[in-house]
Design a binder for these strands. Sequence first.
DNA 1: CCAAAAACTCAACTACGCTTGAAGTACGGG
DNA 2: CCCGTACTTCAAGCGTAGTTGAGTTTTTGG
Lengths: 158, 158
Amino acid sequence: MGEENVPSKEHWLSIGEIAHRSGVAASALRFYEDQGLIASRRTAGNQRQYQRSTLRRIAFVQAAQRVGLALAEIKQALDSLPEDRTPTRADWSKLSKTWRSRLDERIEELERLRDDLDSCIGCGCLSLQRCNLYNKEDRLSTRGPGARLLNVGIPGEA
Amino acid sequence: MGEENVPSKEHWLSIGEIAHRSGVAASALRFYEDQGLIASRRTAGNQRQYQRSTLRRIAFVQAAQRVGLALAEIKQALDSLPEDRTPTRADWSKLSKTWRSRLDERIEELERLRDDLDSCIGCGCLSLQRCNLYNKEDRLSTRGPGARLLNVGIPGEA
DNA sequence: CCAAAAACTCAACTACGCTTGAAGTACGGG
DNA sequence: CCCGTACTTCAAGCGTAGTTGAGTTTTTGG
């Protein structure tokens, strides 16, 4: 032990290395930088150099995308994290709670949809008589039969 | 009884009526028509007229969008339905099975993500040591520590 | 030292699902 | 008959998340 603990002056990574290790295209990395999601310093010859921790940020971005966040929101989340210390459990916990509820909502919505779908299989649907999938709030039309269809609450989707 | 069963020469709806009743903008309806999702006939003066059943198709489109299908896929689904008869239980059942598995997959993915998130709250994550959320398939890098991150399987998302 | 590989910038392009605007036509009530 | 609202087409634009390509410079290895 010892050799691995040497603080050893941060070793910077080229965009190619980051791209390879993160699986994210260099063009996307430049794009992320434009968007303020990641940062780099430059060599004398103007080439980007990244800290190792950038890989974490990228992973974070990817995870957040899977949660369904837009890059702008991800940036906000990242900005809410401490500038350049490793985020603490508390930092992380706060963020993950937001994510969690996002996920929960989305999962619930999909489950509702799935259940409605199931009941539709039974009802021989598309005939539009009292079908959950269609008639979320039937009879909204000003007069006569016909529904204002499904436009109610698709949470999380402006 | 009887009055409601009169075949009563289909009564056609203007784009404005359809827009209002479906909650979908007229511009979107024209767009859907361009995309082959819905159809209309025209008046002598070239204005669109829709059958009532178009409201069903639109509802179908909306539901499918909630399932996560792209318009092109929705068109395929619609095309697989009988031209102009009301779809039968069997037609519907076939489609809904596809949807169902899409939904199941997506729900499962989100649940996995949620569980990983939970275990992360416990692990004080972002330090990148053996975290499920990050290290889906750790140590893929050619040498040394560092992971090819999270690029594994986001099913249903090309 | 020099070629090839890798990086740089900037603008333009992609795909999706629409919206917006301009210019013109149709429909319906008074 | 006329006015206002609703409709028509077509082209262009938007937001998101990048990719692609041209032309140039830097870095790396034999």
